[in-house]
Design a protein around this nucleic acid. Structure first.
Length: 954
RNA sequence: GCAGGGGUUCCCGAGUGGUCAAAGGGGGCGGACUCAAGAUCCGCUGUCAAGCGCUUCGCAGGUUCGAAUCCUGCCCCCUGCACCA
């Protein structure tokens, strides 16, 4: 017997695939396309388990689709601009370019060793000028379209990263990358006007296959809210306060107005008055304190009266103006109309400062609002309106009426607010795409002409530790240039682009990666991206940033005329994390480094337990893919990854589990060898095994088509081995059946474990490699009636054996000495007859409640007075059932019904299989007869049902 | 607080009204093989019991002839956003 030797066959097939260029694909409108893409890696060093998982999923799907006849685009690249490379370069004194390229080499070799089937011709790296020149080209295009804006505004500045950040990159006022605190800084910056697309980005979410949580996060992020902007004229002033509200229907309950302390009107109003001092104190407090303190402080709502009043535009009432620490300057208009009767926050504030509370919405139509001591925030019926024609209106009608009145009187308008901001694109860092603009004293900020692209990053820059600032800014050769307009000396822009820019269109570049005259050819992009990338796989951490930017880009590029695609990704799968055991203290709820395994908790001194935690360097619970591939081979690692959990679920690394997957691979290998070597001429299990494979293959295609890889692999790598082994145990199969089975089975092994499959395919004598094969999977012929019977019979046998086992222990207790015989009593003929009739009637929608008893009375078996009771009881059990179990005619599946109706000869079938039953049950004698035709051992005759014989031991 | 996702047997994890004491894997136990270990194979793994038994799918109710599955309320966990007006 040949041993399973993954190392040899894996390298063999990897180079064979490479030799025949198996995975290179071209546009071919005559075939259905499938674009399979994984979020490309940031080349930070070696490949880790998260990558392995991501790409194992993608590769299996790509291979599955190729096998099914699709024209598959499956490319790979590197998201290689970014700070880690720059920081590494500073540390070791090199250039980010060199750091990046050596990491890319390393990752590429890991990817190759896993056998991933990429079209390597399309490989790209975003830090390559062949790529980023198109970043610049697109930027100029966006500029022409009016989507680029340079403006000075407060920005999020991260001190430790030495750069500004986009809104999306700030989490809890901390930097997404380094977790350092972010502060506000006024800065001239480049923006992409993503808000132009806010509505499309939100509305189009409805039609794409993203997971619900990702859609929710994006909706949340875009944060569209419908409402009104309402003007509150300031008493004795020409100014008015513009407040945004989502609840214009509560306007008659406004008892004060609150401004953000940063609101410019605050200053105007208090300057030189007795209220100035208090206001300054509040404003300073808000400006200074750290985010952490502010979160605490904000539990305590604070405000100061500004000494002035504003007029409610619909009533003319004057209400006091406050500045409040809880009003956010950057959202809406930075001013809030306060309705303490219907907003809990305003309610708290009003109580604290003794401001009147007025209720103008009622929970019940026609009734006065209840006084509860809390604000009623739901929709309600308007009451107490200080103008006619409003009372009695509800919800949207109420809002519309108020807005209409405001618009008519020029005091406001219905508006829509977004949380989404424009994308702050510029970074004060070196390792990114230079923004292609030039600052000229005379001509201003002007674009680099297209013919001068790319603006390349200089390679002669020295990076040293402790260096701060952007090295581009001090690189004379880069900075100094001439103005394309007036030809006088000018300076280059030294800001570079956010690296998320690079990854916002790489999936389009892959469609035509070698194009040197354009970012991509339109027809190529339209072919491969029609309906979007068909399957996009990556981590949930990109739910907002990358996926939102990429959607925006695709739409903007569409509007630039570069493609006809509106949504880049038609189906997104976010793969779960790979976890591994790590020491854990239950009491302190802290995870520790694996070095502390088996020791005591450093905090509370209790013994540490273990729990599953995300693999990370800081916990030391990582597992090196390289080591695992070396030990078990790529196929086993892939099988483990796919079988360990469904793609979306988190999975736990387990040494024993990968070991058992390796054993499974060996079992598959030896089953295949056994099949190939089979020279038997007859096989009693032929019919059954072939029926099984017809059934199972359809299920497999079904599961795989829906990225149900775990289920798919369970069928191909577990159930089918079990079927094979069962067939062997039950008496074996013939050579021709073995061949037929393998011809179907081996391709099913191919997506998950392609090397083994390819090797076995060749050994089976096939000339065309699986990598080049195109099998019509959907042509699977399915199971026919004969298959159903054969499968049903075998299941019947298994069930009989199972039941025999389950009563065995009891029988042993009730019998003196060893058991020597098993007695099987199949159901009486009249039972089978009745059941068969009942099935027929059930199919004809017979009403058993109505006519069941009447029918029974016409039956021959019912005429015998002694049997009447039994017949009644039996009848109930097959057509009605008990509390817990429904009647058999309802619970029998197709197989069972077919067997019963076709008068399956249970006695004959068991007689044929006596040797097998005797062997597996380890018993000398197996007796079988129809109940009533032999001794009624242990009173089992009465309990026998069709397909459920009474089983007794002796 | 809002939004999304969850809570299933020793563990992980399938399971969307009856075929469910609930797939599969891990772990554990037992057996075969072996001098032994490992590997491999077979069986068992809620509970009492020669049963159309009893109890179990976060908790409490409800709908139903029948609920892990549907409805209501509550508790807990994870993720994201957050005094967003």
């Amino acid at each position: 017997m040949i041993d399973y030797d993954p190392a040899t066959i894996e390298t063999k097939w990897q180079s064979a695939w490479n030799d025949v260029k198996a995975f290179e694909s071209e546009v071919d409108p005559s075939r259905p396309k499938f674009y399979c893409l994984e979020m490309f890696p940031y080349p930070s060093g070696k490949m880790h388990m998260g990558h392995v998982r991501n790409y194992s999923i993608g590769d299996s799907m790509a291979r599955f689709r190729r096998l099914a006849g699709y024209n598959v685009l499956y490319p790979m690249g590197y998201d290689s601009f970014g700070m880690p490379a720059e920081n590494a370069a500073r540390k070791i004194g090199g250039h980010p370019h060199d750091v990046t390229w050596s990491n890319i080499e390393s990752i590429r070799s890991d990817l190759t060793r896993m056998g991933f089937s990429y079209d390597w011709r399309r490989e790209l790296a975003t830090s390559d000028s062949a790529y980023y020149r198109w970043n610049q080209w697109i930027f100029l295009k966006f500029h022409e379209m009016g989507l680029v804006e340079r403006r000075t505004a407060p920005t999020n500045w991260c001190d430790s990263c030495d750069t500004v950040l986009a809104n999306e990159q700030v989490k809890n006022n901390r930097c997404w990358r380094c977790n350092g605190e972010v502060r506000q800084k006024h800065f001239p910056s480049w923006y992409l006007k993503m808000t132009t697309y806010a509505d499309q980005l939100l509305d189009d979410l409805e039609h794409i296959g993203f997971p619900e949580n990702v859609k929710a996060m994006q909706r949340n992020w875009i944060g569209r809210s419908h409402g009104a902007e309402i003007h509150f004229p300031i008493v004795d002033s020409a100014d008015s306060i513009k407040a945004f509200t989502t609840r214009p229907d509560s306007i008659f309950g406004v008892t004060f107005v609150t401004l953000a302390p940063e609101h410019p009107l605050c200053n105007t109003l208090v300057e030189g008055t007795e209220f100035e001092a208090d206001f300054r104190e509040l404003a300073d407090e808000c400006a200074k304190i750290s985010e952490f303190d502010r979160m605490n402080m904000l539990r305590d709502k604070k405000g100061v009266f500004l000494g002035r009043y504003a007029t409610n535009p619909l009533t003319g009432e004057a209400v006091p103006i406050y500045a409040g620490n809880f009003v956010v300057a950057s959202y809406g208009t930075g001013a809030v109309m306060a309705v303490p009767g219907h907003d809990q926050r305003d309610h708290d504030f009003a109580k604290k400062y003794d401001i009147p509370i007025s209720q103008v919405l009622s929970e019940e139509d026609g009734k006065e609002p209840k006084v509860t001591g809390r604000a009623f925030e739901g929709l309600g019926w308007m009451v107490n309106s200080k103008r006619p024609d409003f009372d009695g209106l509800y919800g949207d009608d109420a809002k519309a009426a108020v807005i209409a009145a405001l618009e008519k009187e020029g005091m406001g308008a219905g508006t829509i607010q977004y949380r989404l901001k424009d994308w702050l694109l510029s970074r004060q860092r070196f390792w990114g795409t230079p923004i292609p603009f030039i600052h000229c004293d005379d001509c201003g900020v002007i674009p680099v002409p297209e013919s001068d692209l790319p603006v390349e990053l200089p390679l002669d820059v020295v990076f040293t530790e402790g260096q701060s600032g952007n090295p581009l800014a001090s690189h004379d050769g880069f900075v100094n240039t001439t103005c394309p307009n007036c030809n006088l000396a000018a300076k280059r822009e030294t800001d570079t682009m956010d690296t998320f820019y690079d990854s916002s269109w790489y999936f389009l570049r892959f469609a035509d990666a070698l194009n040197q005259s354009a970012p991509f050819d339109k027809s190529n992009a339209d072919y491969w991206l029609e309906g979007g990338v068909d399957l996009y796989i990556g981590g949930i951490e990109h739910a907002v940033m990358h996926l939102l930017y990429a959607r925006f880009f695709t739409k903007a590029l569409r509007d630039a005329g570069l493609n006809d695609v509106s949504e880049p990704f038609s189906r997104l799968v976010c793969q779960g994390m790979v976890n591994a055991p790590t020491p854990f203290c239950k009491t302190c709820n802290v995870e520790y480094h694996v070095d502390l395994d088996g020791q005591k908790c450093p905090i509370c001194d209790e013994s540490l337990g273990s729990r599953s935690a995300k693999m990370s360097k800081s916990l030391g619970n990582t597992v090196s893919p390289e080591t695992m591939i070396g030990k078990y081979g790529a196929d086993t690692v892939r099988l483990f990854i796919l079988f360990g959990a469904n793609p979306e679920a988190g999975m736990d690394w387990s040494d024993s589990a990968i070991d058992s997957n390796y054993r499974q691979m060996k079992a598959i290998h030896s089953a295949l060898i056994q099949g190939i070597d089979n020279s038997s001429e007859s096989g009693i299990m032929d019919e059954w095994l072939l029926a099984r494979v017809r059934l199972v293959r359809n299920n497999w295609v079904d599961r795989m088509s829906n990225v149900g890889l775990r289920d798919g692999v369970m069928i191909s790598h577990f159930e089918m081995v079990a079927d094979w082994q069962w067939a062997q145990r039950r008496g074996g199969i013939s050579a021709s059946t073995a061949r037929e089975y393998l011809t179907t089975w081996i391709p099913m092994l191919y997506p998950a474990t392609p090397h083994l499959a390819e090797e076995m395919w060749e050994m089976l004598g096939m000339d065309t490699m699986l990598a080049l094969s195109n099998l019509d999977l959907h042509d699977a012929s399915g199971v026919d009636i004969q298959d159903t019977i054969v499968l049903g019979q075998e299941e019947y046998l298994r069930r009989v054996i199972e039941r025999a086992r389950s009563v065995r222990e009891l029988a042993e207790r009730h019998t003196d000495g060893d058991l020597s015989a098993i007695i099987i009593q199949t159901a009486q003929e009249w039972k089978v007859e009745l059941a068969s009739k009942a099935i027929q009637m059930h199919n004809d929608a017979f009403d058993f409640k109505q006519g069941g008893n009447k029918f029974l009375q016409t039956q021959e078996c019912f005429q015998d007075e002694d049997m009447k009771g039994d017949v009644m009881q039996y009848w109930r059990s097959i057509v009605v059932g008990q509390k817990k179990r429904r009647g058999r005619i309802h619970t029998w599946g197709e197989k069972e019904s077919t067997l019963v109706s076709s008068e399956f000869d249970e006695v004959g079938f068991i007689l044929e299989n006596i040797p097998f039953i005797a062997t597996v049950l380890d018993i000398e004698t197996v007796e079988v007869y129809r109940a009533g035709e032999g001794e009624d051992v242990a009173g089992k005759a009465r309990t026998s049902l069709p397909l459920e014989p009474g089983i007794a031991w002796r």
